[in-house]
Nucleic acid binder design. Structure first.
Lengths: 334, 334
DNA sequence: CATCCTTCCGAAAAGGTTTTCGAGAGGAAG
DNA sequence: CTTCCTCTCGAAAACCTTTTCGGAAGGATG
């Protein structure tokens, strides 16, 4: 910077003014400085700027399993939104879904002086860690939770799809097709999304006056879906299954196929997420679509607002999911 | 830090020594300082440290499409390896696969003073941008390319699976099953991985003295695989297809199913990647497995070595892929 | 002509750490 | 007892910006 100032025949403060678009600098001087910057391939030093301004221009992302479709898509969407808002994004993954791992990830992020945190690792237990290591912090780092448990952490703003509504759409779709009940392959109970989808499914059945079968446990993976599918296939009374996500639905589809139960002839199946492969499964999967790009933008927007305001906000921001009907569901054959 | 020094009854330089594990500090003093740090919940300021040491402890990751299975898994693997090596990771995604986008992503990363860069956005054209904006840079930032074109950029070290060998495995597997030739659904030619797989497929056919059909273009997506699959299904002479990745294979499977061509009865299909869903497709997909976690560790290791040595290294590091035979391939029925 | 205001830019401090240099204390060797 | 060495720690400079304050130049006003 000193070199630039020297070359332009001004002092370094003026260079700083030019870099920061300060108004009071003659346009002719500005042009001279800009030329000098270009000539010397000047790169401002972020560390020095951060030190002086106390603003790192960085937001942190705590992730868990980015091989899941949802989170991996969100990383992308959030990075994009962050760039547009002028922020860098630094990621820290939790090794496991427990308190030490998550709080260690948050510690790393805070150590890096991020201005805000978005978390995609939604284990309920972890939030108590958050409560300890984040919310009580004097500098109270702004935070946004993607799909957190609003009951457990009402003071953390969250953005998520309306999981219960989505589950309701799926379940009522199956009921409307004449199914006497709908079975459910659930995501891990540590994930609020999984609990909300389960609750939505349960409510839709109860509202329709139908019996609520015991949900089958899954871990979001196709493998767990397959295991659940084998169990369901063994029960001839099963005619409709709502899966917590598309990947588990893939496993269920496979299990049905293996055991000779036709989809959708004998059994109808619905997923959740609408991953890009869903239309090309056998059969093309009826599923609940959520707009991940929109969720990413929204969470970033919420974070930026908090950073700008300097106060933590609260409240949930829910986006409405859509049901995408394809070929894996059909009316119950009497 | 000053507060900590005050509380411990030492000066701030001594605190710095304790933080950095400097040898010459009495163990009793060290204990006192550590206690003070804990008592005050002291967080060292990275910006100041970076300014003083000129080391940001951060590596940059340039990505393109993290919804693809490979890249999304790699992000995870690299973050993990980086944490173990004591680095933070900052991501920058290229908006599109062209020179301005990629060089803009790199510019953002350099602006952030990353100590090294790993790139997962492997468009050939982009590397000329790299040549301009990175390699010629005085500070010559260490870099590792995941799956770059070694012919175009021999001076950039790279780590990747041996794509040609993997394609050879897949193709020879199909040949050994008696197929007269093997068709290929290729990834986008901008990706070196796609070109290498295509070359490996071609070489295996030529070595076996078999005709080489025109490859069908794809873009890694199931949708493009479906389109290619429809074209292939229309040709009754097609009995074996090697797909550039698993997602396109899903599309091909769907197309075959729709047109009533049995897999593997009439047509055998092989994918590439071995995504977690591969065993649960219909039928379970024979595919080429690559060890993404290992690739992530290796690229990080290579980057750290370069940073430590202060010199750019060259050379390719190839890992050997495995063929995983499942149910989507079978001997040609005469 | 004197005074005041505006516009533009430089001087200097501040931000928190690392690092080099030097000094003091204590012990060992002559 | 003196000298020298080692161990431990403090003083001060350096890293590169931003920001506040003040000053100089020029024009407008009384």
């Amino acid at each position: 910077m000193r070199d630039v100032a020297h070359l332009a025949g001004v002092s370094h403060q003026t260079v700083s003014r030019v870099v920061n678009d300060h108004p009071s600098v003659r346009s002719e001087t500005r042009a001279r400085v800009l030329a000098a910057m270009r000539a010397l391939d000047y790169q401002p030093n972020v560390a020095a700027r951060t030190l002086a301004t106390n603003r790192s221009q960085t937001v942190g992302l705590v992730t868990f399993d980015t091989t899941l479709f949802g989170p991996s898509f969100m990383v992308h969407a959030i990075e994009r939104a962050a760039r547009e808002a002028g922020y860098f994004v630094s990621i820290a993954s939790a090794r496991e879904l427990n308190v030490p791992s998550v709080s260690e990830a948050i510690r790393r992020l805070r150590e890096q002086a991020v201005e805000g945190i978005i978390t995609l690792a939604p284990v309920a237990a972890a939030w108590t860690a958050l409560g300890r290591s984040l919310l009580d912090v004097p500098a109270h780092v702004p935070i946004v939770g993607m799909g957190i448990d609003v009951h457990a952490m009402p003071e953390v703003p969250m953005v998520a799809v309306d999981n219960a509504a989505g589950a309701g759409l799926a379940t009522r779709h199956l009921i409307a097709l004449g199914h006497r009940t709908v079975h459910h392959v659930a995501g891990p109970p540590e994930w609020p999304e999984a609990r909300e989808r389960l609750a939505g499914w349960q409510a839709a059945l109860t509202d329709a006056g139908l019996p609520v079968p015991t949900p089958l446990p899954g871990d979001w993976s196709a493998r767990s879906g397959y295991a659940a599918g084998r169990a369901l296939a063994a029960d001839p009374s099963v005619t409709a299954v709502f899966c917590g996500n598309d990947q588990m639905a893939i496993g269920v589809l496979r299990a049905m196929h293996e055991t000779g139960r036709a989809v959708p002839g004998e059994v109808s199946i619905v997923g959740f997420d609408d991953m890009p492969e869903a239309p090309y499964l056998q059969p093309p999967l009826t599923t609940v679509r959520q707009d991940f790009a929109e969720l990413g933008r929204r969470s970033m927007h919420l974070l930026v607002t908090q950073i700008a305001a300097g106060v933590r906000q609260t409240g949930q921001h829910r986006s409405a999911p859509d049901l995408v009907v394809r070929d894996s569901t059909s009316a119950l054959a009497i």
